[in-house]
Design a protein around this nucleic acid. Structure first.
Lengths: 253, 253
DNA sequence: CGGTTCGTTGATCTATCTCAATTAATGTGG
DNA sequence: CCACATTAATTGAGATAGATCAACGAACCG
């Protein structure tokens, strides 16, 4: 791997790491694998031997009920270690699917044991990362359980925008988009038809432009208001909290 | 504390601990606190200095939206460390509320740092515990997003039963109950009125008896079927997986 | 260029919500 | 130990957000 730390920008946003620590992390990343869109990277029931760091592309965690209904639990962008939990939870209880072609770096569980035993700060960083994942799950529960369709979609778009921006993947108020309306429904507990209609409404209000490949946000303030979006749950470093390292983008979400 | 390890039965179900390790954990538990029903043990926005181990009573994690709607993220029973995440996530992003009078043991964050740095196995045990919490969140998302009212309630009752049974708190097919129908609604994303009607249906089918203080399950097989309940997501040790320690109750969920 | 996937739109249906009132249970002060 | 206050459960009636079914159009893909 020669990512030169760029890939740990997300981890670093959550838990400030020294450059030596980033170098150490870089070293435990083993071979990389590539997948095509719609391939499953990890399957429900698997007993993986490695964790995955997403290098390029987009994935989602999901699970299908006995009754055949699908729920998406989270979306992942480059820099996310999307199955750190497989290191401690032997058996996968969900599937990870590629939304686009993508590349991952494998981190063998054995290396995870090694590095987390020797470097407690790195252990805490990765642990914290899994805790932020859990916080995001809670927020999604709130979204699905207690918000209406436009709130759910607005909230999700806000989250995705901030997460992209924080790791330098936003371009102005725009991010690349590779989520179908069906997937959007599976993520928000709505039908794809209703997602479509609600999206039309949000578009109609002039808040966003959304194509198959790109999301442009025209009115952040209102989008955020509609979605009741408050980025606290992402537990990002703020400038005042920063213990060295990159300050969080000046923009107030 | 003189819990003599009984309190770590849950942790032990997830990650088998030696008795020395349990003794170590016992030693980091500091003073205990008592709360009355409906008091908040930890508040959204707090920056706690201790983690809480629930000794007696029942609590729930919850959060109220800007719009005043409440979502419950999880219920906790004795043996649960319900805010281990506060150790790494400085600021609370949700509230923990007592459903009954309850007692907790405080574990100072400083002790958490100490013990997790010195004993990597203990660190992994607690980390794994937080990962199981996250798995439960995912399952709840599935519940709220993709199941209908009776499925949601059946699933929740199955989960609560198994979690009680595993730590020895079930009596036959019966567990103590202290969840109001309003809370049940906040946990499942339903209105309390609809919870009531759905409960009447489930009762009518003879599957359960539910009073204010007790849940009796009369037909586990059907309840489980209705709720599409599969206990894998709880990541409990099974007999074949056990590396010493107590075997999981012989009963097949 | 034909097939497949995804988005769009209409029409209808229904699970669940909201509002409102009643009853049952629980707790409290006198 | 009773009368009243409070909280929770129950039931009815009516409203609605969102689901389902079905068809069509647009984009993309080999």
């Amino acid at each position: 791997m020669s990512s030169s730390n760029a890939l740990f920008r997300k981890l670093d946003q959550i838990f400030p790491l020294t450059s030596e620590e980033k170098a150490l992390l870089d070293r435990v990343c083993g071979r990389t694998l590539s997948f095509e869109a719609n391939e499953h990277l990890v399957l429900d029931g698997d007993r993986p031997t490695d964790c995955n760091l997403l290098i390029e592309g987009m994935t989602c965690r999901n699970h299908v009920t006995a009754g055949g209904k699908r729920q998406i639990f989270s979306f992942h962008i480059p820099g996310d270690i999307f199955d750190a939990q497989s290191f401690l939870l032997q058996k996968m209880d969900h599937t990870v699917t590629a939304l686009t072609a993508c590349t991952v770096a494998l981190i063998p569980h054995s290396k995870m044991v090694e590095i987390t035993e020797r470097y407690p700060r790195i252990a805490r960083a990765i642990w914290k990362d899994t805790l932020v994942d859990a916080a995001i799950f809670r927020e999604w529960m709130m979204n699905i359980g207690r918000r209406d369709a436009s709130q759910r979609l607005a909230h999700l778009m806000c989250e995705l925008y901030v997460r992209h921006d924080v790791v330098g993947l936003a371009e102005g108020w725009s991010i690349s988009w590779s989520i179908t309306q069906q997937d959007l429904g599976d993520a928000t507990g709505l039908s794809s038809v209703h997602v479509n209609r609600t999206l039309m409404e949000i578009r109609g209000a002039g808040l966003i432009t959304l194509t198959k490949t790109r999301l442009d946000i025209h009115d952040w303030a209102r989008l955020k208001e509609i979605g009741e979006f408050d980025p606290d749950y992402l537990h990002l470093r703020t400038n005042d909290g920063a213990r060295g390292g990159l300050p969080l983008s000046q923009r107030m979400y």
